[in-house]
Design a protein around this nucleic acid. Structure first.
Length: 233
DNA sequence: AACCAGGACGTGA
DNA sequence: TCACGTCATGGT
């Protein structure tokens, strides 16, 4: 725990002024007109915080959260498009998919054996919810759902105020000496939540902005060279 | 040609 | 608890 942590809001404003609203979580049905390789500047549905709306859009975010684990969104998105072609972004349909067909559809996102299992597990869980918003604890009990995936689902699929921490978040804040590099997930998450207003759009944008920022300055070692955030802390 | 990608799980100490 | 190997494919 550092004292510099009050800088969390300053950093948010700085990132927002640099990159603007990110429009996360991307949906296949709302592909932006300006997608980029870095994941995208104003690429999806910027400043629209009402998505996802429909049941299958919520489900699509959940599938994407599993598919993008330790994989670029570019590849996860390809897998989602393949599933869409199979008309399988619908829980009942996906459960009926033959495992080999499912695997071939998501192969591009890697870890096809685990992820095919995880997708069906989370789908069964999703159906059992019957429209109810799951608790964080419930989500974590689903095989294949860890801290980050649970928070991603809650924040971006269900619009719950759960801050999402990922490897980039730690990489950036540790490099800036704002936190120790062995800080635990829940500690870093709580650090953000206790220093930000409990506001879903802010949580959504902040995580997305950190990812965009990391792709520009923390993609490869040495990390953080010429990071403009160093000028404001 | 290594290294990384919007992690999670199982294992043994 | 915690460090470490494993899971798999694609892009740079």
């Amino acid at each position: 725990m550092s004292k510099h942590v009050k800088q969390i809001m300053n950093i948010y404003h700085k990132l927002y002024s640099l990159y603007g609203p990110q429009g996360w979580w991307p949906l296949i049905s709302h592909e932006g007109r300006n997608p980029t390789k870095t994941g995208a500047v104003r690429g999806y549905h910027p400043q629209n915080y009402d998505l996802p709306q429909m049941r299958n859009q919520i489900y699509e975010v959940i599938l994407g959260a599993i598919l993008t684990q330790n994989t670029s969104w570019l590849q996860a998105n390809k897998a989602l498009i393949n599933l869409h072609q199979l008309n399988a972004i619908e829980p009942e349909k996906l459960l009926k998919l033959d495992d080999e067909i499912l695997k071939s559809a998501i192969r591009c996102a890697g870890f096809l054996n685990q992820k095919s299992t995880y997708l069906k597990e989370i789908t069964t869980f999703f159906l059992e919810l019957n429209g109810r918003i799951p608790s964080r604890k419930e989500l974590l009990q689903v095989k294949g759902v860890g801290n980050e995936t649970a928070d991603s689902i809650l924040l971006y699929a269900y619009k719950q105020p759960e801050f999402v921490v990922d490897a980039y978040t730690l990489r950036i804040f540790a490099h800036l000496n704002l936190v120790d590099d062995n800080i635990k997930y829940m500690e870093l998450k709580e650090l953000f939540q206790s220093n930000l207003p409990t506001d879903v759009p802010i949580y959504q944008e902040y995580h997305a902005l950190l990812v965009e920022h990391a792709k520009r300055y923390y993609k490869r070692k040495p990390y953080g060279v010429d990071d403009p955030l160093k000028l404001i802390i």
